[in-house]
Design a protein around this nucleic acid. Structure first.
Lengths: 175, 175
DNA sequence: AGAAAACAGTTGGATATAAAACTATTCGCC
DNA sequence: GGCGAATAGTTTTATATCCAACTGTTTTCT
């Protein structure tokens, strides 16, 4: 076993080009190192991979409570900004407003948020948390804090601040 | 709708339209600041927002060539690792192998990659780029380099290295 | 050798998301 | 006051993605 694609040459050696596959050596199925080429040094690619990894780690945690990361940010933003509109909310968490419709339908159906029309503007909703929603938000917040501690440890206290500010610059300039 | 919707202003303060970095003033639809609560200081949330922003910026660029960011990494990995299997590829770019099936079908249909069965293992495919695929990869690479320059500028040369290494630590430890 | 386990890839079901077209309401301006 | 543009939210359509179940192949174990 393990005689796969190197019968052709074995000295094809394209590894170590940059010596830096994102993360670990990144063995492929059989322990062969993957060549990431320029991807290895690019912010965009590593940002995508890191986000996916962190997101999935948090998903696993949040699943036990029965919710997903996207819901968490939504609940937090509504909790912190009672009366916020869907459009403002969609901007605040960086997603299209149309993506929010099914999420809010679900949250409302489960009794976590309330949606009332504004008297002054019959098009818009005022979003608020219900007591149940507040309770769930509390649980999720505890859960998220655990995740954050892990991330903080990985990033490291010394670099934490610069790291966060770099992320915020990206958000600000490309958002 | 460009900027014609602000004839309503006159006395409209509307500062910082494009700056809603969590932790910053972050105006909502009507110029109200959004309260991000603890999200503002969390790595996880900012990672998600930054990735989404960068991804969309690159999408806009790549769309002109007629491909999407996910395809780009796929092509690059195949180009750099000719003969790679689908499973190894899926691991290398951090997605489930089942996500790859439709992507590879499409790339093959468009004549960008070739898929051949291994003689030694009739289950697996050997993936390689066609000349057309190599050409498209080249175009996309140029396009991606432009995007990378933007990101590098935003992150800043001084912090670039630490930033990238922090991302890689996250990938390695949570992947 | 033969059965069981491991593995490569696909399929089907579910969620998340974006973009564009749509409906209903409000606002700006004459 | 009324018309046309802007706005809030929804619907529709299309992708991307995961997970679990599945098919067929290879390896492992006895």
């Amino acid at each position: 076993m393990r005689r796969k694609n190197e019968r052709k040459n074995g000295s094809e050696r394209r590894k170590g080009r940059r010596g830096d596959p994102p993360g670990r050596p990144a063995p492929d199925a059989r322990g062969e190192a993957i060549d990431y080429g320029p991807l290895a040094g690019w912010v965009g690619f590593n940002l995508r991979m890191a986000q996916a990894a962190a997101f999935q780690a948090f998903s696993r945690l949040a699943k036990e409570i029965g919710t997903r990361p996207g819901r968490f940010a939504t609940l937090m933003l509504i909790g912190r900004n009672p009366g916020i509109s869907q459009t403002a909310l969609s901007r605040a968490n960086g997603r299209d407003k149309s993506s929010l419709t099914p999420v809010l339908n679900d949250l409302a159906r489960r009794g976590l948020i309330r949606r009332r029309r504004l008297r002054s503007d019959q098009r818009a909703y005022r979003l608020t948390l219900t007591p149940t929603g507040r309770r769930l938000l509390g649980e999720l917040t505890r859960c998220a804090r655990a995740h954050e501690r892990t991330l903080d440890r990985i990033v490291g206290a010394r670099e934490q601040d610069g790291f966060l500010r770099a992320l915020k610059r990206i958000i600000a300039e490309l958002g």
